[in-house]
Design a protein around this nucleic acid. Structure first.
Lengths: 191, 191
DNA sequence: CAAAAAAGTTAACAAATGGTAAAAAAAGCT
DNA sequence: AGCTTTTTTTACCATTTGTTAACTTTTTTG
């Protein structure tokens, strides 16, 4: 296993040494999930972080019986139920495979060990979450300034591959609208 | 200057040593901003982070002539224009004092030095941004699942002090609605 | 204090989105 | 393939929010 995509992903943030990589290699596990398989279930405590080497995950939660999709992970990103992961409390967020997935996993204990013993890894953790924070801010801007139609069009531009794999109802709730509203939008949009 | 509030804030995340504190004391500066004074102007490059020791700041940007408020900082929080700070590119975000403010400042170069030489400080940086990320996620949930009225009510509960100091138009755009809509909501809500 | 500017409110109408229900289309299952 | 379940679309009406414009109130400034 050479973890090529993972190394490329991380090299965007920090230049790691051979030694840093040697420390992480033994604690990376591979997890294959079938479509609809769960990475994290409701009420469970998140004890690992995943890198999506193949496939798409979604993060959602149950809101009065409706599933609200907070995130659809593109390829090659880090993902976990962070509120649960940080506080080690039962997760309200559910993470499930939209397609068959290959995930690279690191357990929380291992990652904490890396953080405390390899300053470069602590830095990786900080830099990645910083980027995720900025992206989330951008999403807030689009939610408070743009119509659902504009958000939908932007999503098509930014993540065209997602539409090949992800049911529209998930996309609708990610955009903050009902699937009926999304259908209506799609009817009026011509390309 | 004993930085009591700052120490309390940081101790929520990481236990620092005397030595860690000795390293940061010399590089903390105090900045007093008058109401409407700028912490970061549009087009400038963010080179510092603030801790709001007194007063309230807002983060906003110009969107077709309208000011869109992305954030209103409560007391005792860290704040900067992160996209500009990370990439060292001109900021589209503007940070301005809503009230007279006392800010504890650390310059980016100093903070980077701390990050690279004091693992505990790197950890502080990571833990704080993790928390901010989770809060931002919660805001996304409320934007995609709740009506403006529900968001407004929740804001009153969560940050009652903000309403004593912050113009309603800023709150409206923070909630993702116009100030006219907020007026309408306020008229219909009885307490 | 008075004038000017900014902030907040109101109203009428327009546009966007939600809720409900049903039909159509697609996907999953023996 | 045929049956079942899930997903997507459509339609109608209700609700929420936006737009424009005028007015009122509050704050700032000379």
């Amino acid at each position: 296993m050479d973890h090529k995509a993972l190394k490329l992903f991380i090299s965007n943030f920090v230049e790691l040494t051979e030694n840093d990589w040697k420390a992480v290699e033994p604690v990376i596990e591979v997890l294959h999930l079938k479509k609809n398989g769960f990475f994290i279930r409701e009420g469970k405590i998140a004890k690992k972080i995943a890198f999506t080497n193949k496939g798409y995950l979604r993060v959602y939660y149950n809101h009065d019986g409706d599933e609200i999709t907070r995130d659809i992970s593109p390829l090659y990103t880090m993902i976990t139920a962070l509120p649960s992961y940080i506080k080690q409390k039962p997760s309200f967020e559910i993470i499930q495979a939209i397609t068959d997935c290959e995930l690279l996993i690191i357990k929380r204990d291992h990652l904490e060990f890396l953080y405390d013993n390899y300053p470069n890894w602590q830095k990786v953790g900080r830099r990645i979450i910083e980027e995720m924070f900025v992206e989330t801010q951008n999403r807030i801007y689009s939610l408070i300034t743009q119509t659902a139609e504009a958000r939908y069009k932007k999503m098509i531009e930014s993540f065209p591959d997602i539409f090949l794999h992800v049911p529209l109802q998930y996309i609708a709730s990610y955009l903050g609208i009902t699937s009926q509203s999304l259908s209506r939008l799609r009817k009026t949009i011509k390309f």
